[in-house]
């Protein structure tokens, strides 16, 4: 993949190199800036933000904004903090990621090792579904969730995320399994191994890397989703919707420090995944764009 080893053969002079480093560091500062602003201001009393300088370190350090964002801040009409919504997000993300990844693995296996007439069409149909603007499905989805009695529930959100996630997971596993020698599958078949046995014994043991990519991609996407959450969340809104409600609330004093603490809370799970498994995260992004 995009391993760091192979550098270009181009050589550069000293002045150019100084310039390169300067630009690269400036951009690093630009990318870090909002993180710094959020972090620093989430541990300040509000008066230091409204009457002070956003870039300055706190004079009085406090965790009160974090406690407030987590358990007492006003979200919509209830002063519950973000905690219940964080739990909603967890309850939604875990099953949705698990189901879509398993389904994607099976689909990828079938589309590469059990090819049939028209399988490229099937894949094409599923692939295109990754790229539709979700606005086109919002209205019928609302109708169907209502009919199924799943409107405003975590189960409803899981269903939505699985349905619109299997295109991507199928894409990942299909491209990954395509490189796996089909002769091995045929040999196992001749030895009498069946469909599931081959999958379980031969493909699954080598699927580790792509499973990680798929899990991370789905986790990030579903955790960060806002459109489905706000449309179908009802009383089971996920974290992103709650954060937006917290920040946009028009009543009372704007507690910027609480907003920043809340924003970091909403970002923590995906940031954590990115820090722990960034390599796979990048790989997933690439696989989703450069299909090959």
């Amino acid at each position: 993949m995009s391993a760091a080893s192979q550098d270009t053969a181009v050589s550069t002079g000293r002045v150019t190199r100084t310039f390169l480093y300067l630009v690269l560091i400036l951009f690093a500062l630009f990318y870090l800036l909002p993180l710094y602003v959020m972090g620093v201001n989430s541990v300040k009393p509000l008066s230091e933000i409204t009457g002070g300088n956003m870039m300055a370190l706190p004079q009085i350090w406090t965790l009160a904004p974090w406690r407030s964002a987590w358990s007492t801040a006003q979200i919509g009409v209830e002063p519950t903090g973000l905690k219940p919504y964080f739990l909603n997000s967890i309850l939604m993300v875990v099953p949705a990621v698990a189901i879509s990844t398993v389904v994607g693995a099976l689909n990828g296996y079938i589309l590469t090792k059990w090819r049939f007439r028209g399988d490229t069409w099937v894949f094409g149909l599923m692939l295109f579904s990754c790229f539709i603007p979700f606005q086109i499905v919002l209205i019928p989805m609302a109708v169907v969730l209502g009919k199924l009695g799943l409107a405003g529930t975590v189960s409803g959100l899981i269903l939505v995320h699985v349905v619109y996630g299997i295109g991507f997971t199928t894409l990942y596993f299909r491209n990954y399994y395509a490189a796996f020698p089909t002769e091995l599958i045929r040999a196992a078949q001749i030895d009498g191994a069946g469909f599931f046995r081959i999958f379980w014994r031969i493909l699954l043991p080598v699927s580790g890397p792509i499973a990680v990519v798929s899990v991370i991609w789905q986790f990030t996407n579903i955790w960060n989703d806002f459109l489905f959450g706000v449309s179908f969340g009802g009383t089971s809104q996920p974290m992103t919707v709650a954060l937006n409600n917290l920040v946009q609330s028009s009543t009372g004093v704007k507690e910027y420090n609480v907003h920043f603490a809340g924003a970091i809370l909403a970002a923590l799970p995906t940031l954590f995944v990115y820090i722990v498994a960034g390599r796979y995260f990048v790989r997933g992004l690439m696989a989703g764009s450069v299909k090959g």
């Binding site: 909002p34 960060n224 970002a267």
Partner: peptide
């Protein structure tokens, strides 16, 4: 590299919140 890339892991709502207050003339 990871510094350039980490914003991609964030929700647009988080990004929006951070920039909204950073660009706010008052604070």
């Amino acid at each position: 590299r990871p510094i350039y890339l980490y914003p991609m892991a964030l929700s647009f709502i988080v990004t929006g919140t951070a920039w909204k207050w950073f660009l706010d003339p008052g604070i």
